[in-house]
Structures are given as C-alpha cells and as structure tokens.
Amino acid sequence: MTDASFETQTETGEAQFGDYVALLKPRVMSLVVFTAAVGLLAAPGGVHPFIAFFAVLCIAIGGGASGALNMWYDADIDRVMKRTSGRPIPSGRVQPEEALAIGLTLSGFSVIMLGLATNWVAAALLAFTIFFYAVVYTMWLKRWTPQNIVIGGAAGAFPPMIGWAAVTGDITLASILMFGLTFLWTPPHFWALALFMNSDYEKAGVPMLTVTHGRRTTRRHIFAYTFPLAALAIGLAFTQVGGPIYLAVAVVMNLAFVKGAWDILRRDEPTAEADKYKVEKRYFAFSLLYLFVHFGAILAEATLRPWGMGGW
C-alpha cells in the first residue's frame, strides 16, 4: 500500500470497530439470539451451558455474517434509501470488499465451529440459512418479486430450529412450527413497515408489494396472513414445547394481532396520511412484541417444566 492510498483512505473516512460491528446488523442479531436460545432451551435433553452459549454465539455470528453479505450486495440500494443511507458501505466508511471478506470469513467460521461444538445437522441448517438470506433472498428474490419477504422470511425463521437441532440433532414438528411462527409473522410485520416507508422502496426500485400492487392490496394481504399465522401459533401450543401458559398468551396475542390487521384493512390512504400512519406504526411495533411474547411463553414453559409446572 502506498502513501497515496493512505491519503485516499483519510478522505473517505476511516472505519472504526463499531462500523464493522454495524455490518453484522446487531438489532436483527438480537432477534436471532433470542429465538435461537429459546429453541435450544425448549429442546428435550439439554446440553452443557457452555456449549449452549457457544452454539447461540455461532448462530448469532452466522446471522451477522449473512447481514454483512447482504450489505455488500445491496450497497447500491442502501445508498438510495433514507433508512439505510447511513450504513457503513453507502456512507463510505467500509469498503464493499471488506464487507464481502468479513461476511464470507464469519460464515465459514460460524458453521464449522457450530458443527464442532454441537452436531452437523445444526451446522448444515446454519449454512443453509446464510445461503438462503445472502443468495436466495438478497441476490434473487429482493429485486425480482413482491413476494420477496414472504419467501425470504424463511432466513430469519431458522434460528429456533437451529437451536433445537444443536441439542437434539434432528428436526421435529415442534421445531418446524417454531420456524413457521416467524415465517408467517414476517410478511405482516414488513408490510406494515412498507406502508409507511413506501417512498424509500419506490426510489430504490425494490418491488415491495406496496410499490407493485398498491397499499390497498397490501392492507388486504396483511389481514389475510394473520389467520394462518394465528392457526399455527395456537397449534404450537399442543406440541411438546407448548402448554397452558403458551396457549393463553397465543390466544390473546393473536386476537389482538387480527384486530390490529382489521383496523389497518379498514383505513384508506387519506385517513392514514392525515395521522401520519399512526395505526400502521403502532401495528409494526406491536408485531415485534407479538413475536417476543410468543417465544417468551415457550421459554416460560421450558423453564417451569423441571418443576412439573410447564407443558401439558
């Protein structure tokens, strides 16, 4: 590296350690950590606490690695969108090649370390999750179809299944339904966001449902998705991870989620614009709570089980 290149680096801004951490999307990582930990703790059998901690760390780093690969590939889109223009690559603090190298290295590390620490079923699921998010969602679906987040949502839904597999080494109905819970929750969650962030996606040319089919259709889709989601969420109560606490939580939360979607469906654009999408923003925030409370209830059942209180 020459002195001239040092000068160039100074002008574009030097990356600090926090910029590299930001590549791993820490906020998304927190959801991954929580759901993976619940999947792991709810699984029958149990592992040594250090192995459990290590497994969740590997899953989190794998998720972060796929986030870095996403930021590398989507830098052109991120530059255009207001919400993402401050990310490390569009703002010039991190070079795209650095993000690619970090993403690929951490992907390999996390998968191999998870395999060595637990088993290769969990490692294979983590590898597939990274591939699904970075290649299937980011490179293929996101710019091609308005169903991008419906199918791409699978990537964010795998962590509880990986956590479960880290303990048991298999895939069962309970872990598939935990996957399904996040999978079916993703579309209404992101479409609620798209309703009040529409102009960003339009500018970037991302074919979100709001851009391609309009907000009326998006409102109908949000409402429609809450029914299969509610059926699955309540159905999960009757598997080995469920119990009366989870059932009560699922019934209350899903009634509120369907009611919220009904409120969104009934609104028209002039009303929503008049109150600056207050209802849609509230629904988006509630959707975060929805997922947190469901997995929290599964965790409560698992925690109480050793005392003979959790489960059926």
Binding site: F6, T10, E14, A15, Q16, F17, G18, Y20, V21
Partner: peptide, 13 residues
Amino acid sequence: ELHKRRWSRNLGL
C-alpha cells in the same frame, strides 16, 4: 497519526 486513527479497530480486533 495512522495508529491513532486505527486504535479503535486494532483494539477491537
């Protein structure tokens, strides 16, 4: 000056 600028990332790494 380069070392001062890169202190945070070197320490972090």
